[in-house]
Computed example of a mutant assay.
Amino acid sequence: MAEHINYQLAHFVASYGKVSQIPESTCPEVSFVGRSNVGKSSIMNKIFGRKNLVKVSSTPGKTANVNFFEADGVHFVDLPGYGFAQRSKAERERWGDLIGEFFELDRSFNLVVSLVDIRHDPSQLDHQMIDYLKEAELPFQVVLTKADKLSRGRAAQMRQNIARKLGMKTGDLLVTSSSDGQGIDELKAIIEERCLDA
Rank of each mutant, 00 (worst) to 15 (best):
Phe12Met: 15
Phe12Pro: 11
Leu144Cys: 04
Trp95Lys: 14
Lys55Arg: 09
Phe69Val: 03
Lys62Glu: 02
Val30Ala: 13
Tyr82Asp: 01
Arg107Gly: 02
Ala90Glu: 15
Val13Thr: 10
Thr59Lys: 14
Gln128His: 06
Glu101Tyr: 02
Ser15Glu: 04
Glu101Asn: 06
Thr176Arg: 09
Gln21Trp: 11
Gly34Asp: 08
Leu150Trp: 00
Phe109Lys: 06
Val38Lys: 00
Phe68Cys: 05
Lys89Gln: 11
Asn45Thr: 13
Arg50Trp: 09
Val74Phe: 05
Ala90Pro: 00
Phe48Cys: 13
Lys89Ile: 12
Thr26Gln: 15
Leu174Pro: 08
Ile191Phe: 09
Lys46Cys: 10
Arg35Tyr: 10
Asn65Arg: 10
Asn161Gly: 03
Asp126His: 00
Asn45His: 08
Ile47His: 05
Val113His: 08
Pro60Ser: 15
Glu3Gly: 15
Ser36Val: 04
Gln141Asn: 06
Leu133Arg: 14
Leu133Met: 14
Gln160Pro: 01
Ser88Phe: 02
Lys146Val: 02
Arg94Leu: 03
Gln128Lys: 13
Ala147Ile: 07
Thr176Gln: 05
Ser57Tyr: 10
His11Val: 03
Leu196Cys: 11
Ala147Trp: 00
Gln86Trp: 02
Ser179Cys: 11
Val33Gln: 04
Ser179Trp: 13
Gly153Cys: 05
Phe103Asp: 06
Arg164Asn: 07
Lys146Arg: 11
Asp106Val: 00
Leu98Pro: 03
Leu196Thr: 08
Gln141Thr: 02
Leu9Lys: 14
Leu115Thr: 01
Ser58Thr: 05
Ser41Gln: 05
Gly183Lys: 01
Leu98Ser: 05
Asp97Gln: 13
Phe76Tyr: 06
Ile99Phe: 00
Gly153Thr: 13
Cys195Gly: 02
Pro139Met: 07
His127Asn: 10
Arg164Ile: 00
Ile190Phe: 07
Ser151His: 12
Tyr132Ser: 08
Arg92Cys: 03
His11Gln: 04
Gly100Pro: 00
Leu144Ala: 09
Gly49Lys: 03
Gln21Asp: 15
Arg35Asn: 06
Ile162Val: 09
Asp185Ala: 15
Ala64Phe: 00
Ile191Gly: 08
Met129Gln: 04
Pro122Leu: 05
Ile118Cys: 06
Lys18Leu: 08
Phe84Val: 04
His75Pro: 01
Arg107Leu: 00
Ser42Glu: 01
Tyr7Val: 07
Glu93Ile: 13
Ser179Lys: 15
Gly167Gln: 14
Ser36Thr: 06
Leu174Phe: 11
Lys149Arg: 14
Thr176Trp: 01
Val38Thr: 06
Asp172Tyr: 03
Leu166His: 04
Met44Gly: 09
Pro80Ala: 12
Glu93Cys: 07
Ser178Tyr: 07
Leu196Tyr: 07
Val30Gln: 04
Gly17Thr: 13
Leu196Gln: 10
Glu135Leu: 12
Leu173Met: 10
Leu187Ala: 08
Gln157Trp: 12
Asn110Pro: 01
Met44Ile: 15
Ala90Asn: 11
Thr170Pro: 02
Asn65Leu: 12
Ile5Lys: 00
Tyr7Met: 01
Ala64Asp: 07
Pro139Gly: 04
Val142Arg: 08
Arg50Phe: 11
Met168Gln: 14
Asp180Pro: 01
Arg152Asn: 15
Val116His: 02
Val38Pro: 01
Ala10Lys: 13
